[in-house]
Design a protein around this nucleic acid. Structure first.
Length: 513
DNA sequence: CGGGGAGAG
DNA sequence: CATTCTCTCCCCG
């Protein structure tokens, strides 16, 4: 809701600058887990905090097979392969919720069309899941049901805010009809860059300047693009190809415009591939080391906190077992900044939006769970973040920073989620474990060096200076040096293994026995 | 792997 | 309403 609207309705409203997304994140995770628990193939892909794709092909195939055509009105949808009791009763003579066509009832000719029956079954599954989301958790939802991701997502926009839409596209021309009236910018996968290139070409414009705002973004429809003479995959490829563009972009965009999308629904990722925290300083850019250090401290602190929330195993209460281990840990630390554009006559809007970044290996002390967040933050800033900053900016002040971002990425998984996903196949499990052991072996034999650039510190005059590396810096960031409990010898093979990886390592032995 | 771009919510 | 703060996937050298 617009803040101005909220204040109109509720004048005594207290507005606090900033937000805490914790409850949103937790709820998102909870609802997502619920949906995943109903998936057979585990293809449950999150899109942001409040959307999710489910590939339910396997469930639909099964329920199609067991469908009794003599008692359609009192059918039973089986939610489990193992337990035939699990499921719900439904009326298979109609779709659940809205459909893209006017009639919701399945006529005889449609009943003989397998695709139509499958879509009908999926609509009931969606209806059931949405019902549970509302009854058990208290959240309404929208859903689109179709044969691929693009069509499902577009269908889902039709009956907001709390209904579902099944796209009953039985022939290619039904699909095309559905696509035709959409503005191309609304097609998932066509962002503002590609939309403008396509629009400019179709309208035979040669405008180089791409407007950055949503306002004058392409209002041109899919139909108008497809009616353009000579529009082929190859033509789109030529129009859209610039250095750095995705290979096969022409074919991809052409397909999307036709409602064709072979992108897989990806299996759920247990840990994010990246965690980043950023802040913008538009009205008052960062210019002095004092301001800089304060902001780096704020951002780093919240990053360490987020790492512990998102990357630590929370299956047991930490105070019950006393042991928490990393599900995954990042190998890389990255600092990005954006410099505020100089207010001049010809400001290429481009400039103010692009970022620069530098990265380096993440020091290992960051993973010491027992150390306090403040302690780790301080060390991280001085030993890693400031050196990265100095690689980005030579000047000692007046950087005019309008954005700072700190990111950890390049995650290494430390254990298989037991009984889940890939772990079924012994040989692939062996391979993954082997790869992980290799990781640890490297750490074992090669003690980490102290980060390049030495330590920087803040001086009274506000400048940042390098010190020659101190004696103590030599022992920077090594688990062994800091905490003898962090590494252990495996009783079976004598290999040195980080404590958090021991469980995985022992499973490795049990697999190879 | 490091750096950057595009697109998503 | 426009901007902010994430996150993922991809390309190039």
């Amino acid at each position: 809701m617009l803040i101005s609207e909220a204040q109109k309705i509720c004048p005594e409203l207290v507005i606090v600058n900033g937000e805490d997304l914790t409850k949103f994140r937790d709820t998102s995770k909870k609802l997502w887990s619920f949906l995943r628990s109903h998936s057979w193939n585990k293809k449950v892909e999150r899109l942001g905090l409040d959307e999710v794709f489910l590939d339910v092909s396997d469930i639909i195939t099964y329920n199609h097979q067991i469908l009794n055509r003599n008692a359609l009105a009192t059918s039973f949808f089986q939610l489990s392969h193992q337990d035939p009791e699990q499921g719900f009763v439904f009326n298979a003579t109609t779709f659940f919720g809205c459909t893209s066509s006017s009639a919701n009832v399945l006529h005889d000719e449609n009943l003989s069309n397998p695709l139509c029956v499958r879509l009908m079954l999926a609509s009931h599954l969606a209806g059931y899941l949405r019902h549970k989301l509302e009854e058990d958790f208290g959240y309404t939802s929208t859903c689109g049901i179709s044969i691929n991701k693009v069509l499902a997502k577009l269908a889902g926009t039709k009956n907001k805010p709390k209904n579902q839409t099944t796209l009953v596209g039985l022939a290619d021309r039904d699909i095309q009809q559905f696509m035709d009236d959409h503005p191309i910018r609304k097609i998932p996968g066509l962002g503002f860059k590609i939309s403008h290139l396509v629009e400019n070409h179709v309208l035979s414009r040669t405008t180089e300047a791409i407007p950055h705002d949503e306002e004058n973004s392409a209002k041109i429809t899919v139909r108008e693009v497809l009616e353009y003479p000579g529009l082929t995959q190859g033509m789109l490829e030529r129009v859209l190809s610039r250095p750095g563009t995705e290979r096969g972009i022409g074919k991809k965009i052409w397909s999307l415009l036709h409602g064709i999308d072979d992108a897989d629904v990806k299996e759920a990722n247990d840990v994010p591939t990246q965690i980043s925290i950023e802040d913008t300083y538009v009205t008052k850019p960062i210019n002095t080391p004092v301001e800089l250090m304060r902001e780096l401290r704020v951002i780093s602190t919240s990053l360490i906190r987020r790492m512990r929330v998102d990357l630590l195993d929370d299956t047991f209460d930490s105070d019950e077992t006393g042991v928490q281990r990393w599900l995954a840990y990042p190998k890389t630390l990255r600092l990005s900044t954006r410099v505020k554009a100089k207010p001049g006559p010809e400001v290429s809007t481009r400039d103010s939006f692009s970022r620069s970044s530098r990265s380096q290996p993440l020091p290992n002390f960051v993973l010491n769970i027992k150390d306090s967040i403040e302690e780790i933050t301080e060390r991280l800033i001085h030993e890693a973040v400031v050196p990265l900053f100095r690689r980005l900016h030579n000047e000692r002040h007046n950087w005019n920073l309008s954005l700072i971002n700190i990111c950890v990425t390049n995650m290494v998984l430390t254990s298989n989620d037991e009984g889940q996903g890939v772990g079924r196949d012994i040989s692939t499990m062996f391979k993954t474990q082997d790869a992980k052991l290799k990781e640890f072996t490297v750490y074992d034999e090669t003690p980490l060096e102290s980060p390049a650039g030495g330590v920087a510190s803040e001086r009274d005059d506000g400048s940042i200076d390098d010190h020659a590396a101190q004696e103590s810096d030599a022992e920077v960031a090594s688990w062994e040096d800091n905490d003898e409990e962090s590494w252990d010898r495996c009783s079976q093979c004598g290999h040195a293994i980080p404590a958090f990886a021991m469980a995985a390592h022992e499973r490795f032995h049990s697999m190879s026995d």
